[in-house]
Design a protein around this nucleic acid. Structure first.
Length: 429
RNA sequence: GCCGUCGUAGCUCAGCCUGGUAGAGCGUCCGCCUGUUAAGCGGAAGGUCAACGGUUCGAAACCGUUCGACGGCGCCA
């Protein structure tokens, strides 16, 4: 058995091969059937001529529609008339599983593709995205490993979360209520006191009723937390990690990038350091560009686009006003109106992929901020404990894996960065 | 939560404004075709026009309500 990608080469010309796959396109012309065969590695045209295979097999070839699974044996030939320049001239056509009329045809609506997601994920684009995503994650894991980070497994079912409690998914947990995790941050913070440098890759859940091309209710979260790390060092970790992830895609996914129409040269530029822009500078820049913003304004989708649309590498926006960010961030001693934090925005208008900060170590400040928000301290006792027993300066961040996939694959919508996107309107299939 | 668009054949859509017996392309089925490129030619089947209510002699069309989907904003990663 030969992978289709490998059959498409001069090495195999004149040789007999066996390939297994699914029919991607098919046309017949009386005594000859042209079937384009797809496997996980690529596509190749197969020609089945009457007389070259047993009559019963030829009959099967004429009636096998798109997505029928087949095993083909035949000789590889170079032929300009074949898509891709090579074809297999079948001497055996074994129909394994005949396909009913495939519901996804030339013209498709977004709605249909979402309803038939379990079939649409067979598409070449979805396959390429899945491979790029795997390469990104593997690149990230290797970078963490090479830099002394330990992968840990925080809980998904939790009693308390770092974000706004109105956006938590509630679940019945025996005879009480629990929540699906929005972030592993607090648990990672607890683990740095022994492991010092940790990371986790987990699903995170947000019950935000967001209807945007950047939001999922369930997304994969790559989070890191490290002791003895300040916010500047935190940004160095982020740019090192993101660069390594992207470079791994460049190294391993040239075919997928071609299919996705993403120029690898544009990704090769992702090398540290990334630009840093203070929040104040971002505001000035936006005002110059005609945005109606002032100090204290949040950066919305439109603002992020303006900040990144003309860039070809990511940019950190540093030191946001406190009121725009959560309570656990470290106050910036140089401007007490702000935190020691950063958001990393992907270039070309894609926007935020990472949010990170140095963490507040002063329990009094944390308690004060929680009280201002009207939070019950009871839920946070264990978190406050972390500052009581040998507290250290530390920082961390969360990276949205589907966000980075969307950017690297140049996708129009984040839902195509995951096989089964979970959004307000979709939990099926 | 807010703003917008849409729902007609298996799929993609036209028809709606200006009410009068439901259309096209693709797919499917049948026939022809030994070099097609999501081929070509001929034929056939296929519709409770999202649902409910109203206006009207007459509603896919006009009005209302509901449901569903999609696009955008906010929130975030």
């Amino acid at each position: 058995m030969v992978a289709i990608k490998d059959a498409l080469s001069k090495d195999h010309v004149g040789k007999k091969v066996q390939v297994k796959g699914w029919i991607y396109r098919t046309r017949s012309s009386g005594g000859i059937v042209f079937a384009v065969l797809r496997d996980s590695t690529g596509i190749i045209q197969v020609t089945v001529k009457k007389g070259n295979v047993p009559d019963a097999e030829f009959e099967n070839a004429t009636k096998s529609g798109i997505e029928s699974s087949v095993i083909i044996e035949g000789e590889v030939a170079e032929d300009k008339r074949a898509p891709g320049g090579f074809e297999i001239r079948a001497s055996k056509f074994q129909l394994v599983g005949i396909a009913e009329a495939f519901p996804i045809t030339e013209y498709q609506s977004t709605e249909l593709l979402l309803d038939l997601r379990h079939l649409w994920i067979r598409s070449r684009e979805q396959t390429a995205v899945a491979k790029v995503k795997a390469a990104l994650v593997r690149g990230g894991r290797e970078w963490f490993h090479d830099n002394g980070y330990v992968e840990v497994n925080p809980p998904i079912v939790t009693g308390v979360c770092p974000e706004d409690s109105t956006t938590l998914f509630q679940m019945k947990y025996f005879d009480r209520i629990a929540y699906l995790s929005q972030s592993a941050q607090f648990y990672l913070e607890s683990l740095i006191f022994s492991l010092e440098k940790v990371y986790a890759i987990t699903p995170s859940f947000r019950a935000e009723k967001s209807r945007t091309p950047r939001h999922l209710a369930e997304f994969w979260h790559m989070e890191m937390e490290a002791a003895w790390l300040d916010n500047d060092e935190n940004m160095k970790v982020q740019e090192g990690l993101v660069s390594a992830m992207v470079q791994n895609v460049v190294a391993e996914c040239s075919e997928e990038l071609r299919l996705l129409k993403r120029d690898p040269a544009s990704l090769k530029k992702m090398e540290p350091p990334f630009d840093r822009m203070k929040y104040d500078e971002a505001m000035e820049y936006l005002q110059k560009k005609g945005h109606d913003v002032s100090w204290g304004s949040d950066l919305g989708a439109v603002e992020e686009r303006t900040l990144t649309v003309d860039r070809d590498t990511p940019v950190f926006i540093v030191n946001y006003p406190k009121e725009l960010k959560p309570f656990y961030m470290k106050e910036n001693p140089e401007d007490k109106r702000t935190y020691k934090n950063s958001d990393l925005l992907a270039p070309e208008g894609f926007g935020e992929i990472i949010g990170g900060s140095e963490r507040e170590t002063d329990n009094n400040l944390i308690i004060e901020r929680l009280r201002e928000k009207g939070e019950s301290l009871d839920n946070y006792q264990w978190y406050l404990d972390l500052r009581k027993y040998g507290s250290v300066p530390h920082s961390g961040f969360g990276l949205g894996i589907e966000r980075i996939v969307t950017w690297v694959c140049k996708l129009e919508h984040i839902r195509d960065a995951i096989p089964y996107p979970r959004t307000v309107a979709r939990v099926y299939p």
